[in-house]
Write a protein that binds this DNA or RNA. Structure first.
Lengths: 198, 198
DNA sequence: ACCTGAACACCGTTCAAGT
DNA sequence: ACCTGAACACCGTTCAAGT
Protein backbone atom coordinates (compact mmCIF):
# COMPACT_ATOMS: atom_id res chain seq x y z
CA UNK A 1 0.00 0.00 0.00
CA UNK A 2 2.79 2.41 0.89
CA UNK A 3 4.87 1.62 -2.16
CA UNK A 4 1.99 2.11 -4.53
CA UNK A 5 0.21 5.04 -2.90
CA UNK A 6 2.70 6.77 -0.63
CA UNK A 7 1.95 7.70 2.96
CA UNK A 8 -1.62 8.53 2.03
CA UNK A 9 -2.06 5.09 0.53
CA UNK A 10 -1.81 3.38 3.90
CA UNK A 11 -5.26 3.49 5.40
CA UNK A 12 -6.79 1.35 8.10
CA UNK A 13 -9.74 0.84 5.83
CA UNK A 14 -7.65 -0.18 2.83
CA UNK A 15 -5.34 -2.30 4.97
CA UNK A 16 -8.16 -4.10 6.75
CA UNK A 17 -9.84 -4.80 3.43
CA UNK A 18 -6.64 -6.28 2.04
CA UNK A 19 -6.28 -8.37 5.18
CA UNK A 20 -9.93 -9.41 4.90
CA UNK A 21 -10.74 -8.19 8.41
CA UNK A 22 -12.20 -5.19 10.20
CA UNK A 23 -10.29 -1.99 11.00
CA UNK A 24 -10.58 -2.72 14.72
CA UNK A 25 -8.57 -5.92 14.39
CA UNK A 26 -5.42 -4.01 13.45
CA UNK A 27 -5.53 -2.13 16.72
CA UNK A 28 -4.95 -5.35 18.57
CA UNK A 29 -1.49 -5.55 16.98
CA UNK A 30 -0.43 -1.90 16.74
CA UNK A 31 -1.38 1.02 18.96
CA UNK A 32 -1.38 3.66 16.33
CA UNK A 33 -1.06 4.62 12.71
CA UNK A 34 2.20 6.31 13.61
CA UNK A 35 3.25 3.05 15.24
CA UNK A 36 2.39 1.11 12.13
CA UNK A 37 4.32 3.53 9.98
CA UNK A 38 7.38 3.38 12.22
CA UNK A 39 7.29 -0.41 12.15
CA UNK A 40 7.04 -0.41 8.35
CA UNK A 41 9.93 1.98 8.21
CA UNK A 42 11.98 -0.16 10.51
CA UNK A 43 11.48 -3.25 8.37
CA UNK A 44 12.89 -1.39 5.38
CA UNK A 45 15.74 0.21 7.29
CA UNK A 46 16.77 -3.07 8.90
CA UNK A 47 16.87 -4.71 5.48
CA UNK A 48 19.06 -1.96 4.08
CA UNK A 49 21.45 -2.11 7.03
CA UNK A 50 21.78 -5.88 6.80
CA UNK A 51 22.47 -5.71 3.09
CA UNK A 52 25.32 -3.20 3.50
CA UNK A 53 28.48 -5.20 4.11
CA UNK A 54 30.90 -3.80 6.67
CA UNK A 55 34.13 -4.98 5.06
CA UNK A 56 36.90 -2.73 3.80
CA UNK A 57 38.00 0.61 5.19
CA UNK A 58 35.63 2.55 7.45
CA UNK A 59 35.28 5.19 4.74
CA UNK A 60 34.24 2.58 2.20
CA UNK A 61 31.85 0.98 4.65
CA UNK A 62 30.28 4.38 5.41
CA UNK A 63 29.90 5.16 1.73
CA UNK A 64 28.27 1.80 1.11
CA UNK A 65 25.96 2.23 4.09
CA UNK A 66 24.92 5.70 2.98
CA UNK A 67 24.37 4.55 -0.57
CA UNK A 68 22.31 1.62 0.68
CA UNK A 69 20.06 4.03 2.55
CA UNK A 70 19.81 6.26 -0.51
CA UNK A 71 18.81 3.36 -2.73
CA UNK A 72 16.25 1.95 -0.34
CA UNK A 73 14.62 5.37 0.02
CA UNK A 74 14.64 5.77 -3.73
CA UNK A 75 12.89 2.43 -4.01
CA UNK A 76 10.39 3.22 -1.25
CA UNK A 77 10.02 7.01 -1.25
CA UNK A 78 7.58 7.02 1.67
CA UNK A 79 10.49 5.96 3.89
CA UNK A 80 12.13 9.29 3.16
CA UNK A 81 9.24 11.27 4.55
CA UNK A 82 8.55 8.87 7.43
CA UNK A 83 12.13 8.83 8.63
CA UNK A 84 12.00 12.15 10.41
CA UNK A 85 11.65 10.30 13.66
CA UNK A 86 12.59 11.22 17.19
CA UNK A 87 15.86 9.85 18.49
CA UNK A 88 14.10 7.32 20.69
CA UNK A 89 12.54 5.37 17.84
CA UNK A 90 14.00 2.12 16.65
CA UNK A 91 14.79 2.89 13.00
CA UNK A 92 16.72 5.94 14.12
CA UNK A 93 18.60 3.99 16.74
CA UNK A 94 19.62 1.42 14.14
CA UNK A 95 20.93 3.99 11.68
CA UNK A 96 22.71 5.98 14.33
CA UNK A 97 24.38 2.92 15.74
CA UNK A 98 25.63 1.63 12.43
CA UNK A 99 26.95 5.02 11.36
CA UNK A 100 28.51 5.43 14.79
CA UNK A 101 30.36 2.13 14.61
CA UNK A 102 32.05 3.19 11.40
CA UNK A 103 32.79 6.61 12.86
CA UNK A 104 34.48 4.92 15.78
CA UNK A 105 36.48 2.66 13.44
CA UNK A 106 37.57 5.80 11.65
CA UNK A 107 39.38 6.90 14.80
CA UNK A 108 37.30 9.96 15.59
CA UNK A 109 38.08 11.21 19.13
CA UNK A 110 35.49 9.99 21.63
CA UNK A 111 34.17 13.46 22.46
CA UNK A 112 33.50 14.13 18.79
CA UNK A 113 31.72 10.86 18.03
CA UNK A 114 28.26 12.21 18.64
CA UNK A 115 28.76 15.32 16.54
CA UNK A 116 30.18 13.49 13.56
CA UNK A 117 27.64 10.67 13.58
CA UNK A 118 24.87 13.22 13.96
CA UNK A 119 26.06 15.23 10.95
CA UNK A 120 26.15 12.16 8.73
CA UNK A 121 22.72 10.93 9.81
CA UNK A 122 21.20 14.38 9.32
CA UNK A 123 22.61 14.61 5.83
CA UNK A 124 21.37 11.15 4.85
CA UNK A 125 17.88 11.89 6.13
CA UNK A 126 17.91 15.32 4.51
CA UNK A 127 18.61 13.90 1.07
CA UNK A 128 16.08 11.16 1.73
CA UNK A 129 13.40 13.70 2.53
CA UNK A 130 14.27 15.68 -0.56
CA UNK A 131 14.02 12.60 -2.74
CA UNK A 132 10.70 11.70 -1.21
CA UNK A 133 9.30 15.17 -1.84
CA UNK A 134 10.31 15.06 -5.49
CA UNK A 135 8.92 11.55 -5.91
CA UNK A 136 5.60 12.50 -4.38
CA UNK A 137 5.28 15.65 -6.43
CA UNK A 138 6.11 13.61 -9.51
CA UNK A 139 3.52 10.99 -8.69
CA UNK A 140 0.94 13.68 -8.06
CA UNK A 141 1.52 15.10 -11.53
CA UNK A 142 1.80 11.69 -13.11
CA UNK A 143 5.38 12.26 -14.21
CA UNK A 144 8.40 10.04 -13.89
CA UNK A 145 11.61 11.28 -12.34
CA UNK A 146 13.23 12.59 -15.52
CA UNK A 147 10.14 14.41 -16.69
CA UNK A 148 9.61 15.91 -13.27
CA UNK A 149 13.18 17.21 -13.03
CA UNK A 150 12.86 18.53 -16.55
CA UNK A 151 9.78 20.48 -15.56
CA UNK A 152 11.41 21.82 -12.40
CA UNK A 153 14.44 22.81 -14.45
CA UNK A 154 12.26 24.72 -16.89
CA UNK A 155 10.58 26.46 -13.99
CA UNK A 156 13.93 27.48 -12.53
CA UNK A 157 15.20 28.79 -15.84
CA UNK A 158 12.15 31.04 -16.15
CA UNK A 159 12.69 32.71 -12.79
CA UNK A 160 13.74 36.34 -12.67
CA UNK A 161 17.53 36.37 -12.84
CA UNK A 162 17.76 39.52 -10.71
CA UNK A 163 15.78 38.03 -7.86
CA UNK A 164 17.24 34.52 -8.11
CA UNK A 165 20.62 34.92 -9.79
CA UNK A 166 21.96 31.54 -8.76
CA UNK A 167 18.96 29.32 -9.28
CA UNK A 168 17.95 30.79 -12.62
CA UNK A 169 21.44 30.28 -14.01
CA UNK A 170 21.98 26.76 -12.77
CA UNK A 171 18.68 25.33 -14.03
CA UNK A 172 20.37 23.14 -16.62
CA UNK A 173 22.43 21.35 -13.97
CA UNK A 174 19.17 20.47 -12.23
CA UNK A 175 17.86 18.33 -15.05
CA UNK A 176 21.13 16.66 -15.98
CA UNK A 177 22.60 15.92 -12.58
CA UNK A 178 23.01 12.44 -11.16
CA UNK A 179 21.18 12.23 -7.81
CA UNK A 180 23.17 9.31 -6.61
CA UNK A 181 26.56 10.81 -7.48
CA UNK A 182 25.61 14.10 -5.85
CA UNK A 183 24.48 12.32 -2.73
CA UNK A 184 27.81 10.55 -2.51
CA UNK A 185 29.68 13.79 -3.16
CA UNK A 186 27.96 15.28 -0.12
CA UNK A 187 28.96 12.28 1.99
CA UNK A 188 32.52 12.82 0.83
CA UNK A 189 32.46 16.50 1.80
CA UNK A 190 31.52 15.48 5.31
CA UNK A 191 34.11 12.69 5.38
CA UNK A 192 36.81 15.15 4.37
CA UNK A 193 35.69 17.46 7.15
CA UNK A 194 35.77 14.58 9.63
CA UNK A 195 39.21 13.44 8.46
CA UNK A 196 40.38 16.98 9.13
CA UNK A 197 39.86 16.60 12.88
CA UNK A 198 41.51 13.21 13.29
CA UNK B 1 -2.26 27.83 14.91
CA UNK B 2 0.87 26.14 13.58
CA UNK B 3 3.15 27.47 16.30
CA UNK B 4 0.86 26.33 19.06
CA UNK B 5 -0.39 23.04 17.65
CA UNK B 6 2.09 21.93 15.00
CA UNK B 7 1.04 20.78 11.56
CA UNK B 8 -2.05 19.13 13.00
CA UNK B 9 -3.08 22.38 14.62
CA UNK B 10 -3.76 24.05 11.29
CA UNK B 11 -7.27 23.09 10.31
CA UNK B 12 -9.65 24.76 7.92
CA UNK B 13 -12.26 24.57 10.62
CA UNK B 14 -10.04 26.12 13.27
CA UNK B 15 -8.67 28.70 10.86
CA UNK B 16 -12.08 29.74 9.57
CA UNK B 17 -13.34 30.05 13.12
CA UNK B 18 -10.40 32.29 14.04
CA UNK B 19 -11.06 34.36 10.92
CA UNK B 20 -14.76 34.51 11.77
CA UNK B 21 -15.78 33.06 8.43
CA UNK B 22 -16.71 29.76 6.81
CA UNK B 23 -14.25 27.10 5.65
CA UNK B 24 -15.25 27.65 2.04
CA UNK B 25 -14.07 31.27 2.12
CA UNK B 26 -10.45 30.20 2.53
CA UNK B 27 -10.60 28.28 -0.73
CA UNK B 28 -11.10 31.52 -2.57
CA UNK B 29 -7.59 32.56 -1.52
CA UNK B 30 -5.67 29.28 -1.53
CA UNK B 31 -6.21 26.19 -3.63
CA UNK B 32 -5.16 23.64 -1.06
CA UNK B 33 -4.08 22.86 2.42
CA UNK B 34 -0.69 21.99 1.02
CA UNK B 35 -0.70 25.38 -0.69
CA UNK B 36 -1.53 27.11 2.55
CA UNK B 37 1.25 25.27 4.36
CA UNK B 38 3.80 26.10 1.68
CA UNK B 39 2.80 29.76 1.83
CA UNK B 40 3.12 29.77 5.63
CA UNK B 41 6.51 28.15 5.29
CA UNK B 42 7.61 30.68 2.76
CA UNK B 43 6.69 33.59 4.99
CA UNK B 44 8.96 32.19 7.72
CA UNK B 45 11.79 31.29 5.35
CA UNK B 46 11.74 34.69 3.66
CA UNK B 47 11.96 36.37 7.06
CA UNK B 48 14.94 34.23 8.06
CA UNK B 49 16.75 34.91 4.79
CA UNK B 50 16.19 38.65 5.03
CA UNK B 51 17.46 38.72 8.59
CA UNK B 52 20.72 36.97 7.71
CA UNK B 53 23.18 39.65 6.66
CA UNK B 54 25.44 38.83 3.74
CA UNK B 55 28.51 40.77 4.87
CA UNK B 56 31.89 39.28 5.65
CA UNK B 57 33.55 36.28 4.06
CA UNK B 58 31.40 33.77 2.14
CA UNK B 59 32.11 31.18 4.83
CA UNK B 60 30.88 33.52 7.54
CA UNK B 61 27.82 34.44 5.51
CA UNK B 62 27.02 30.77 4.93
CA UNK B 63 27.39 29.99 8.62
CA UNK B 64 25.12 32.87 9.54
CA UNK B 65 22.57 31.85 6.93
CA UNK B 66 22.56 28.24 8.12
CA UNK B 67 22.30 29.29 11.74
CA UNK B 68 19.44 31.61 10.87
CA UNK B 69 17.57 28.70 9.32
CA UNK B 70 18.31 26.54 12.33
CA UNK B 71 17.00 29.15 14.74
CA UNK B 72 13.86 29.87 12.77
CA UNK B 73 13.05 26.15 12.62
CA UNK B 74 13.74 25.83 16.31
CA UNK B 75 11.31 28.66 16.91
CA UNK B 76 8.68 27.23 14.54
CA UNK B 77 9.22 23.45 14.54
CA UNK B 78 6.46 22.82 12.00
CA UNK B 79 8.65 24.51 9.40
CA UNK B 80 11.13 21.68 9.80
CA UNK B 81 8.62 19.03 8.83
CA UNK B 82 6.96 21.16 6.15
CA UNK B 83 10.20 22.04 4.42
CA UNK B 84 10.60 18.75 2.62
CA UNK B 85 9.30 20.40 -0.50
CA UNK B 86 9.91 19.66 -4.14
CA UNK B 87 12.51 21.75 -5.91
CA UNK B 88 9.89 23.74 -7.75
CA UNK B 89 8.36 25.32 -4.68
CA UNK B 90 9.16 28.85 -3.67
CA UNK B 91 10.66 28.36 -0.19
CA UNK B 92 13.07 25.82 -1.63
CA UNK B 93 14.01 28.12 -4.50
CA UNK B 94 14.75 30.91 -2.03
CA UNK B 95 17.01 28.79 0.17
CA UNK B 96 18.79 27.23 -2.76
CA UNK B 97 19.44 30.57 -4.36
CA UNK B 98 20.85 32.18 -1.25
CA UNK B 99 23.08 29.24 -0.45
CA UNK B 100 24.16 29.14 -4.09
CA UNK B 101 25.16 32.79 -4.13
CA UNK B 102 27.51 32.22 -1.23
CA UNK B 103 28.83 29.05 -2.86
CA UNK B 104 29.60 31.05 -5.96
CA UNK B 105 31.33 33.75 -3.92
CA UNK B 106 33.41 31.00 -2.36
CA UNK B 107 34.92 30.30 -5.77
CA UNK B 108 33.54 26.83 -6.30
CA UNK B 109 34.03 25.73 -9.93
CA UNK B 110 30.88 26.26 -11.98
CA UNK B 111 30.32 22.58 -12.69
CA UNK B 112 30.39 21.82 -8.94
CA UNK B 113 28.03 24.58 -7.88
CA UNK B 114 24.95 22.43 -7.98
CA UNK B 115 26.48 19.56 -6.03
CA UNK B 116 27.87 21.74 -3.26
CA UNK B 117 24.76 23.87 -2.84
CA UNK B 118 22.65 20.74 -2.85
CA UNK B 119 24.73 19.12 -0.10
CA UNK B 120 24.41 22.16 2.15
CA UNK B 121 20.68 22.53 1.62
CA UNK B 122 20.11 18.82 2.28
CA UNK B 123 22.06 19.00 5.50
CA UNK B 124 20.20 22.07 6.73
CA UNK B 125 16.82 20.51 5.96
CA UNK B 126 17.90 17.20 7.51
CA UNK B 127 18.76 18.80 10.83
CA UNK B 128 15.59 20.85 10.61
CA UNK B 129 13.51 17.72 10.19
CA UNK B 130 15.29 16.06 13.06
CA UNK B 131 14.63 19.03 15.32
CA UNK B 132 11.00 19.09 14.31
CA UNK B 133 10.58 15.39 15.09
CA UNK B 134 12.07 15.81 18.53
CA UNK B 135 9.97 18.88 19.23
CA UNK B 136 6.78 17.15 18.19
CA UNK B 137 7.53 14.04 20.20
CA UNK B 138 8.30 16.26 23.17
CA UNK B 139 5.07 18.19 22.80
CA UNK B 140 3.14 14.94 22.51
CA UNK B 141 4.57 13.76 25.82
CA UNK B 142 4.26 17.16 27.40
CA UNK B 143 7.99 17.48 27.95
CA UNK B 144 10.31 20.36 27.23
CA UNK B 145 13.46 19.90 25.19
CA UNK B 146 15.80 19.08 28.07
CA UNK B 147 13.43 16.59 29.64
CA UNK B 148 12.78 14.94 26.31
CA UNK B 149 16.47 14.53 25.51
CA UNK B 150 17.02 13.23 29.01
CA UNK B 151 14.38 10.59 28.47
CA UNK B 152 15.80 9.62 25.06
CA UNK B 153 19.25 9.43 26.62
CA UNK B 154 17.99 7.09 29.34
CA UNK B 155 16.35 4.95 26.68
CA UNK B 156 19.57 4.74 24.70
CA UNK B 157 21.62 3.81 27.77
CA UNK B 158 19.28 0.92 28.49
CA UNK B 159 19.70 -0.63 25.06
CA UNK B 160 21.55 -3.91 24.70
CA UNK B 161 25.21 -3.03 24.30
CA UNK B 162 25.87 -6.07 22.09
CA UNK B 163 23.19 -5.14 19.61
CA UNK B 164 23.77 -1.38 19.71
CA UNK B 165 27.39 -0.93 20.84
CA UNK B 166 27.70 2.67 19.70
CA UNK B 167 24.36 4.11 20.70
CA UNK B 168 24.25 2.48 24.13
CA UNK B 169 27.68 3.85 24.98
CA UNK B 170 27.16 7.38 23.76
CA UNK B 171 23.85 7.99 25.50
CA UNK B 172 25.34 10.56 27.87
CA UNK B 173 26.48 12.74 24.96
CA UNK B 174 22.89 12.80 23.75
CA UNK B 175 21.55 14.60 26.78
CA UNK B 176 24.42 17.03 27.25
CA UNK B 177 25.14 18.05 23.67
CA UNK B 178 24.50 21.50 22.27
CA UNK B 179 22.18 21.20 19.25
CA UNK B 180 23.21 24.51 17.83
CA UNK B 181 26.94 23.86 18.13
CA UNK B 182 26.58 20.40 16.60
CA UNK B 183 24.59 21.81 13.72
CA UNK B 184 27.33 24.32 13.04
CA UNK B 185 30.00 21.63 13.33
CA UNK B 186 28.25 19.72 10.56
CA UNK B 187 28.17 22.83 8.38
CA UNK B 188 31.89 23.19 8.97
CA UNK B 189 32.55 19.59 7.96
CA UNK B 190 30.88 20.28 4.64
CA UNK B 191 32.67 23.61 4.23
CA UNK B 192 36.02 21.89 4.79
CA UNK B 193 35.07 19.33 2.16
CA UNK B 194 34.09 22.10 -0.24
CA UNK B 195 37.28 24.05 0.40
CA UNK B 196 39.16 20.88 -0.50
CA UNK B 197 37.99 21.04 -4.12
CA UNK B 198 38.68 24.72 -4.72
C1' DA C 1 -6.50 -14.07 23.03
C1' DC C 2 -8.14 -12.06 19.11
C1' DC C 3 -11.82 -10.47 15.77
C1' DT C 4 -16.19 -7.86 14.28
C1' DG C 5 -18.18 -3.87 12.62
C1' DA C 6 -21.01 -0.15 13.79
C1' DA C 7 -20.28 4.29 15.67
C1' DC C 8 -17.85 8.72 16.80
C1' DA C 9 -15.50 12.87 16.09
C1' DC C 10 -13.08 15.03 12.80
C1' DC C 11 -10.92 16.15 8.47
C1' DG C 12 -10.20 18.48 3.53
C1' DT C 13 -12.94 19.87 -0.13
C1' DT C 14 -17.02 21.19 -2.99
C1' DC C 15 -20.72 23.92 -4.51
C1' DA C 16 -25.17 26.08 -5.04
C1' DA C 17 -26.66 30.05 -3.20
C1' DG C 18 -26.06 34.45 -1.59
C1' DT C 19 -24.23 39.60 -1.43
C1' DA D 1 -15.30 39.55 -6.56
C1' DC D 2 -15.83 37.26 -2.48
C1' DC D 3 -18.45 34.89 1.35
C1' DT D 4 -21.81 31.34 3.44
C1' DG D 5 -22.54 27.02 5.29
C1' DA D 6 -24.55 22.70 4.50
C1' DA D 7 -23.06 18.52 2.44
C1' DC D 8 -19.82 14.79 0.87
C1' DA D 9 -16.47 11.34 1.14
C1' DC D 10 -13.12 9.87 3.98
C1' DC D 11 -10.15 9.40 7.90
C1' DG D 12 -8.14 7.39 12.62
C1' DT D 13 -9.86 5.46 16.65
C1' DT D 14 -13.02 3.26 20.06
C1' DC D 15 -15.68 -0.25 22.08
C1' DA D 16 -19.35 -3.36 23.28
C1' DA D 17 -20.13 -7.61 21.62
C1' DG D 18 -18.76 -11.78 19.86
C1' DT D 19 -15.80 -16.36 19.35
Amino acid sequence: LLDSGGEGGLTFQALSKRLATGPGAIYWHVTNKSDLLTASCDAIVAKALNAASTTGSPEEALRRLALGMFDIIDEHPWVGSSLNLALGQLPMVRIFDRVGQHIRALGVPAEKEWTTASALVSYILGVGGQNAANAQMGRQKGLDRTDFLGEASKLWSQLDSDEYPFVSGIASQLSTHDDRADFLAGIDFILVGIADLI
